[in-house]
Protein backbone atom coordinates (compact mmCIF):
# COMPACT_ATOMS: atom_id res chain seq x y z
CA UNK A 1 0.00 0.00 0.00
CA UNK A 2 1.32 3.40 -1.01
CA UNK A 3 2.02 6.26 1.37
CA UNK A 4 -0.76 8.25 -0.32
CA UNK A 5 -3.22 5.44 0.46
CA UNK A 6 -2.18 5.40 4.12
CA UNK A 7 -2.56 9.15 4.28
CA UNK A 8 -6.04 9.01 2.70
CA UNK A 9 -7.00 6.17 5.00
CA UNK A 10 -6.08 8.13 8.11
CA UNK A 11 -7.80 11.26 6.78
CA UNK A 12 -11.02 9.38 5.96
CA UNK A 13 -11.08 7.58 9.30
CA UNK A 14 -10.51 10.88 11.12
CA UNK A 15 -13.35 12.46 9.11
CA UNK A 16 -15.59 9.54 10.04
CA UNK A 17 -14.65 10.04 13.69
CA UNK A 18 -15.18 13.80 13.55
CA UNK A 19 -18.35 13.96 11.46
CA UNK A 20 -20.17 11.72 13.96
CA UNK A 21 -18.69 13.58 16.89
CA UNK A 22 -21.62 13.03 19.30
CA UNK A 23 -21.68 9.36 18.56
CA UNK A 24 -17.90 9.29 18.97
CA UNK A 25 -18.21 11.07 22.33
CA UNK A 26 -20.72 8.49 23.59
CA UNK A 27 -18.51 5.64 22.37
CA UNK A 28 -15.40 7.09 23.95
CA UNK A 29 -17.23 7.76 27.22
CA UNK A 30 -18.25 4.12 27.49
CA UNK A 31 -14.73 2.91 26.62
CA UNK A 32 -13.29 5.34 29.20
CA UNK A 33 -15.73 3.97 31.81
CA UNK A 34 -14.62 0.45 30.92
CA UNK A 35 -10.94 1.43 31.25
CA UNK A 36 -11.49 3.32 34.53
CA UNK A 37 -13.36 0.33 35.98
CA UNK A 38 -10.47 -1.94 34.97
CA UNK A 39 -8.05 0.51 36.61
CA UNK A 40 -10.13 0.47 39.79
CA UNK A 41 -9.72 -3.27 39.73
CA UNK A 42 -5.96 -2.68 39.60
CA UNK A 43 -6.28 -0.21 42.53
CA UNK A 44 -8.28 -2.75 44.53
CA UNK A 45 -5.64 -5.35 43.84
CA UNK A 46 -2.89 -3.03 45.02
CA UNK A 47 -4.85 -2.20 48.20
CA UNK A 48 -5.70 -5.80 49.03
CA UNK A 49 -2.16 -6.98 48.25
CA UNK A 50 -0.81 -4.25 50.51
CA UNK A 51 -3.27 -5.17 53.26
CA UNK A 52 -2.37 -8.84 53.00
CA UNK A 53 1.37 -8.14 53.04
CA UNK A 54 1.03 -5.75 55.99
CA UNK A 55 -0.91 -8.39 57.91
CA UNK A 56 1.51 -11.03 56.75
CA UNK A 57 4.45 -9.07 58.13
CA UNK A 58 2.78 -9.08 61.53
CA UNK A 59 1.93 -12.77 61.44
CA UNK A 60 4.19 -15.50 62.71
CA UNK A 61 3.88 -18.86 64.34
CA UNK A 62 5.16 -19.34 67.83
CA UNK A 63 6.23 -22.87 68.65
CA UNK A 64 6.40 -23.35 72.43
CA UNK A 65 8.65 -26.15 73.64
CA UNK A 66 8.18 -28.23 76.74
CA UNK A 67 10.07 -27.01 79.79
CA UNK A 68 12.22 -30.08 79.76
CA UNK A 69 13.54 -29.55 76.23
CA UNK A 70 17.15 -28.45 76.23
CA UNK A 71 18.68 -25.58 74.27
CA UNK A 72 20.64 -27.88 71.86
CA UNK A 73 17.40 -29.73 71.08
CA UNK A 74 15.60 -26.47 70.32
CA UNK A 75 18.49 -25.28 68.17
CA UNK A 76 18.38 -28.58 66.29
CA UNK A 77 14.68 -28.00 65.55
CA UNK A 78 15.58 -24.45 64.45
CA UNK A 79 18.20 -25.78 62.03
CA UNK A 80 15.71 -28.32 60.73
CA UNK A 81 13.02 -25.67 60.15
CA UNK A 82 15.50 -23.23 58.57
CA UNK A 83 16.22 -25.85 55.93
CA UNK A 84 12.57 -25.72 54.76
CA UNK A 85 12.02 -23.66 51.59
CA UNK A 86 8.84 -22.12 52.98
CA UNK A 87 10.56 -20.59 56.04
CA UNK A 88 11.67 -16.99 55.78
CA UNK A 89 12.98 -16.28 59.26
CA UNK A 90 13.22 -17.98 62.69
CA UNK A 91 13.84 -16.27 65.98
CA UNK A 92 14.96 -18.30 68.95
CA UNK A 93 13.82 -17.22 72.38
CA UNK A 94 15.60 -19.07 75.14
CA UNK A 95 13.93 -20.14 78.39
CA UNK A 96 15.76 -17.35 80.19
CA UNK A 97 14.75 -14.66 77.71
CA UNK A 98 11.16 -15.91 77.76
CA UNK A 99 11.13 -15.68 81.54
CA UNK A 100 12.59 -12.18 81.49
CA UNK A 101 10.05 -11.02 78.94
CA UNK A 102 7.28 -12.61 81.02
CA UNK A 103 8.48 -10.77 84.13
CA UNK A 104 8.60 -7.46 82.30
CA UNK A 105 5.13 -7.94 80.92
CA UNK A 106 3.70 -8.68 84.34
CA UNK A 107 5.84 -6.52 86.56
CA UNK A 108 2.76 -4.65 87.85
CA UNK A 109 1.12 -7.90 88.87
CA UNK A 110 2.65 -8.82 92.20
CA UNK A 111 0.73 -12.09 92.50
CA UNK A 112 2.32 -13.45 89.33
CA UNK A 113 5.78 -12.18 90.24
CA UNK A 114 5.51 -13.74 93.72
CA UNK A 115 4.35 -17.06 92.24
CA UNK A 116 7.36 -17.06 89.93
CA UNK A 117 9.68 -16.37 92.87
CA UNK A 118 8.12 -19.29 94.73
CA UNK A 119 9.10 -21.71 91.98
CA UNK A 120 12.63 -23.19 92.11
CA UNK A 121 12.95 -23.42 88.38
CA UNK A 122 11.99 -21.61 85.20
CA UNK A 123 8.44 -22.78 84.32
CA UNK A 124 8.65 -21.52 80.74
CA UNK A 125 10.02 -23.44 77.80
CA UNK A 126 11.98 -22.06 74.88
CA UNK A 127 10.11 -20.64 71.91
CA UNK A 128 10.78 -20.49 68.19
CA UNK A 129 9.06 -17.68 66.27
CA UNK A 130 8.71 -18.67 62.62
CA UNK A 131 7.93 -16.35 59.71
CA UNK A 132 6.95 -17.99 56.44
CA UNK A 133 7.58 -16.59 52.99
CA UNK A 134 3.86 -16.59 52.22
CA UNK A 135 0.64 -16.95 54.15
CA UNK A 136 -0.12 -20.21 52.39
CA UNK A 137 3.11 -21.73 53.72
CA UNK A 138 2.15 -21.72 57.41
CA UNK A 139 -0.10 -24.80 57.36
CA UNK A 140 2.58 -26.68 55.45
CA UNK A 141 5.34 -25.74 57.92
CA UNK A 142 3.17 -26.80 60.84
CA UNK A 143 2.27 -30.03 59.11
CA UNK A 144 5.96 -30.82 58.54
CA UNK A 145 6.61 -30.11 62.20
CA UNK A 146 3.68 -32.28 63.34
CA UNK A 147 4.94 -35.21 61.34
CA UNK A 148 8.54 -34.90 62.39
CA UNK A 149 10.37 -36.59 65.21
CA UNK A 150 10.40 -33.24 67.03
CA UNK A 151 6.65 -33.18 67.56
CA UNK A 152 6.90 -34.68 71.03
CA UNK A 153 9.14 -31.80 72.14
CA UNK A 154 6.46 -29.22 71.36
CA UNK A 155 4.02 -28.00 73.98
CA UNK A 156 1.85 -25.75 71.82
CA UNK A 157 1.59 -23.75 68.60
CA UNK A 158 -0.44 -20.56 68.12
CA UNK A 159 -1.23 -20.34 64.44
CA UNK A 160 -4.96 -21.12 64.39
CA UNK A 161 -6.21 -17.64 65.43
CA UNK A 162 -4.16 -15.97 62.72
CA UNK A 163 -5.34 -18.49 60.17
CA UNK A 164 -8.92 -17.35 60.71
CA UNK A 165 -7.98 -13.69 60.19
CA UNK A 166 -5.96 -14.44 57.07
CA UNK A 167 -8.71 -16.57 55.62
CA UNK A 168 -11.25 -13.78 56.25
CA UNK A 169 -8.96 -11.18 54.66
CA UNK A 170 -8.40 -13.38 51.64
CA UNK A 171 -12.13 -13.97 51.30
CA UNK A 172 -12.83 -10.24 51.35
CA UNK A 173 -10.06 -9.62 48.84
CA UNK A 174 -11.36 -12.37 46.52
CA UNK A 175 -14.93 -11.08 46.73
CA UNK A 176 -13.82 -7.53 45.92
CA UNK A 177 -11.83 -8.86 42.98
CA UNK A 178 -14.76 -10.88 41.71
CA UNK A 179 -17.08 -7.84 41.87
CA UNK A 180 -14.41 -5.76 40.13
CA UNK A 181 -13.95 -8.32 37.34
CA UNK A 182 -17.72 -8.53 36.87
CA UNK A 183 -18.05 -4.73 36.69
CA UNK A 184 -15.20 -4.46 34.21
CA UNK A 185 -16.64 -7.30 32.12
CA UNK A 186 -20.04 -5.56 31.99
CA UNK A 187 -18.42 -2.30 30.88
CA UNK A 188 -16.29 -4.08 28.29
CA UNK A 189 -19.37 -5.84 26.94
CA UNK A 190 -21.30 -2.56 26.73
CA UNK A 191 -18.31 -0.83 25.12
CA UNK A 192 -18.12 -3.58 22.47
CA UNK A 193 -21.81 -3.20 21.65
CA UNK A 194 -21.51 0.59 21.51
CA UNK A 195 -18.50 0.43 19.19
CA UNK A 196 -20.40 -2.03 17.01
CA UNK A 197 -23.38 0.31 16.85
CA UNK A 198 -21.21 3.36 16.22
CA UNK A 199 -19.54 1.72 13.25
CA UNK A 200 -22.96 0.66 11.96
CA UNK A 201 -24.27 4.22 12.19
CA UNK A 202 -21.04 5.56 10.63
CA UNK A 203 -21.53 3.18 7.70
CA UNK A 204 -25.12 4.39 7.35
CA UNK A 205 -24.01 8.06 7.53
CA UNK A 206 -21.40 7.47 4.84
CA UNK A 207 -23.59 5.35 2.58
CA UNK A 208 -23.50 8.00 -0.19
CA UNK A 209 -19.70 8.26 -0.07
CA UNK A 210 -19.39 4.47 0.08
CA UNK A 211 -21.62 4.17 -2.99
CA UNK A 212 -19.43 6.62 -4.90
CA UNK A 213 -16.24 4.93 -3.71
CA UNK A 214 -17.54 1.62 -5.06
CA UNK A 215 -18.60 3.27 -8.30
CA UNK A 216 -15.20 4.81 -9.01
CA UNK A 217 -13.30 1.62 -8.23
CA UNK A 218 -12.00 2.02 -4.69
CA UNK A 219 -10.54 -1.25 -3.42
CA UNK A 220 -12.69 -3.11 -0.90
CA UNK A 221 -10.08 -2.85 1.83
CA UNK A 222 -9.88 0.91 1.22
CA UNK A 223 -13.64 1.25 1.78
CA UNK A 224 -13.56 -0.92 4.88
CA UNK A 225 -10.36 0.29 6.51
CA UNK A 226 -11.47 3.80 7.59
CA UNK A 227 -14.16 2.21 9.75
CA UNK A 228 -11.60 -0.15 11.22
CA UNK A 229 -9.31 2.82 11.82
CA UNK A 230 -12.15 4.70 13.55
CA UNK A 231 -12.06 1.98 16.19
CA UNK A 232 -8.36 2.71 16.67
CA UNK A 233 -9.08 6.43 17.07
CA UNK A 234 -11.63 5.56 19.77
CA UNK A 235 -9.02 3.44 21.53
CA UNK A 236 -6.34 6.16 21.41
CA UNK A 237 -8.61 8.98 22.61
CA UNK A 238 -10.25 6.81 25.29
CA UNK A 239 -6.87 5.68 26.68
CA UNK A 240 -5.62 9.28 26.84
CA UNK A 241 -8.78 10.26 28.74
CA UNK A 242 -8.48 7.24 31.05
CA UNK A 243 -4.89 8.26 31.95
CA UNK A 244 -5.99 11.88 32.47
CA UNK A 245 -8.81 10.77 34.78
CA UNK A 246 -6.93 8.10 36.74
CA UNK A 247 -4.01 10.10 38.12
CA UNK A 248 -6.09 12.88 39.77
CA UNK A 249 -8.40 10.16 41.15
CA UNK A 250 -5.42 8.29 42.61
CA UNK A 251 -4.28 11.53 44.25
CA UNK A 252 -7.71 11.94 45.86
CA UNK A 253 -7.71 8.34 47.08
CA UNK A 254 -4.25 8.54 48.65
CA UNK A 255 -4.94 10.38 51.98
CA UNK A 256 -7.77 8.04 53.12
CA UNK A 257 -5.58 5.10 52.13
CA UNK A 258 -2.69 6.42 54.21
CA UNK A 259 -5.04 6.89 57.13
CA UNK A 260 -6.35 3.34 56.74
CA UNK A 261 -2.96 1.67 56.61
CA UNK A 262 -1.38 4.07 59.14
CA UNK A 263 1.52 4.46 56.74
CA UNK A 264 2.40 6.60 53.73
CA UNK A 265 4.48 3.80 52.17
CA UNK A 266 1.75 2.72 49.76
CA UNK A 267 1.57 5.18 46.84
CA UNK A 268 -1.04 4.33 44.22
CA UNK A 269 0.20 7.00 41.81
CA UNK A 270 3.75 5.69 42.14
CA UNK A 271 2.49 2.16 41.44
CA UNK A 272 0.64 3.35 38.31
CA UNK A 273 3.69 5.34 37.17
CA UNK A 274 5.99 2.34 37.69
CA UNK A 275 3.64 0.02 35.81
CA UNK A 276 2.41 2.65 33.32
CA UNK A 277 3.07 0.66 30.14
CA UNK A 278 1.95 -2.65 31.62
CA UNK A 279 -1.35 -1.13 32.73
CA UNK A 280 -2.23 1.45 30.08
CA UNK A 281 -0.30 -0.23 27.26
CA UNK A 282 -2.13 -3.52 27.72
CA UNK A 283 -5.45 -1.72 28.19
CA UNK A 284 -4.80 0.26 24.98
CA UNK A 285 -3.92 -2.85 22.99
CA UNK A 286 -6.91 -4.69 24.46
CA UNK A 287 -9.32 -1.89 23.56
CA UNK A 288 -7.85 -1.59 20.06
CA UNK A 289 -8.23 -5.34 19.58
CA UNK A 290 -11.78 -5.28 20.92
CA UNK A 291 -12.70 -2.30 18.70
CA UNK A 292 -11.09 -3.93 15.71
CA UNK A 293 -13.08 -7.14 16.23
CA UNK A 294 -16.29 -5.22 16.86
CA UNK A 295 -15.73 -2.96 13.83
CA UNK A 296 -14.82 -5.95 11.68
CA UNK A 297 -18.07 -7.73 12.56
CA UNK A 298 -20.13 -4.54 11.94
CA UNK A 299 -18.38 -3.95 8.59
CA UNK A 300 -18.91 -7.54 7.50
CA UNK A 301 -22.55 -7.28 8.39
CA UNK A 302 -23.49 -3.83 7.16
CA UNK A 303 -20.92 -2.79 4.56
CA UNK A 304 -21.56 -4.61 1.32
CA UNK A 305 -18.72 -3.86 -1.06
Amino acid sequence: MSLASWYQLIIFSWQSFWRNIWLSIVTITIIVLALVSINFLVVLNVITDTAVSLVQEKIDVSVYFKQTVTEPQVLEVKTYLASLAQVDDITYISQQTALQAFRERHQQNTAIIESLEALDQNPLGATLIIQAKSLDDYPEILSVLDNSKYNELILDKNFEDHAAYISKLKNISDTINRIGILTAAVFIFIATLIVFNTIRVAIYTHRQEIGIMKLVGAANWFIRSPFLFSGIWYGIVATVFAVAIMFPLLKVMQPPLNAFFLTADVSLAAYFRQHFWQIFGIEFLGIILLNAVSSFVAIRRYLKV
Binding site: S2, A4, Q8, E209, I212, L215, V216, G217, A219, I223
Partner: peptide, 24 residues
Protein backbone atom coordinates in the same frame (compact mmCIF):
# COMPACT_ATOMS: atom_id res chain seq x y z
CA UNK B 1 -25.32 12.82 -10.51
CA UNK B 2 -24.18 11.14 -7.24
CA UNK B 3 -22.01 14.06 -6.16
CA UNK B 4 -20.95 14.79 -2.59
CA UNK B 5 -22.59 18.09 -1.75
CA UNK B 6 -20.11 18.96 1.00
CA UNK B 7 -17.17 18.70 -1.36
CA UNK B 8 -16.22 21.21 -4.04
CA UNK B 9 -16.13 20.38 -7.72
CA UNK B 10 -12.38 19.80 -7.50
CA UNK B 11 -12.73 17.63 -4.39
CA UNK B 12 -15.53 15.57 -5.93
CA UNK B 13 -13.38 14.73 -8.92
CA UNK B 14 -10.23 14.27 -6.84
CA UNK B 15 -12.17 11.89 -4.56
CA UNK B 16 -12.30 9.29 -7.34
CA UNK B 17 -8.51 9.37 -7.51
CA UNK B 18 -7.89 9.63 -3.76
CA UNK B 19 -9.87 6.47 -2.99
CA UNK B 20 -7.73 4.61 -5.48
CA UNK B 21 -4.54 5.75 -3.76
CA UNK B 22 -3.43 8.35 -6.31
CA UNK B 23 -0.63 10.71 -5.33
CA UNK B 24 -1.33 14.38 -4.74
Amino acid sequence: FKLLTKKTVFENIAFALQVCGAKR
